[in-house]
Amino acid sequence: MRNYHSVLILKPDLDEDQVDQSVEKITSIINKFGGSILKLDKWGKKRLAYRIKKNKFGYYLNVYHTCEQGRVLDLEKGYQLYEQIIKYLVIRLEERDIVRVMDKDKESAAESAKDSAAEENRSEETVAAGEPDKS
C-alpha cells in the first residue's frame, strides 16, 4: 500500500450537488483499486493557465489517498474513463511526505481549535486538546 496525491480538474459547469456526486464517484473509483481517501480538499473553480478540452476554467479537487501497489495505472484509466474529469495528475508520495501533509493538517486543526477555544473560554482547554486527535 502506497500513498498518492491526486489533483483532478473537473468540468467548470458543475453545481455543488454534481460536484458532491463526482466526489462520491471518485471515492468509489479509488476504493475499487484497493485504496482509501486520506484527505480531500476542494480548491474550487479556478482559471486554467491554458485551455483544456476547450475549457478556460476548471473545478480543482485535491485528494490524498492510498492505492494498492501496481494498480495506479488502472486508477488513472478509471480517471480517464470518468467524463467529468478533464485533467488529472497522480504523484507518488514517500512516507515522510504524507507525514508532513498530515502534520500540516493537524497543525492547522490545532490552531483553529486553539482559536475557537480562545474565543469561547480559556477554561475549556480540554476541548482544544481533544480535537486534534480526532483528525
Binding site: V7, I9, A49
Partner: peptide, 8 residues
C-alpha cells in the same frame, strides 16, 4: 504546468 496552474 501539467495541471494548468502555471502556463507552458
Amino acid at each position: 504546468r501539467n495541471i494548468a496552474l502555471l502556463p507552458f
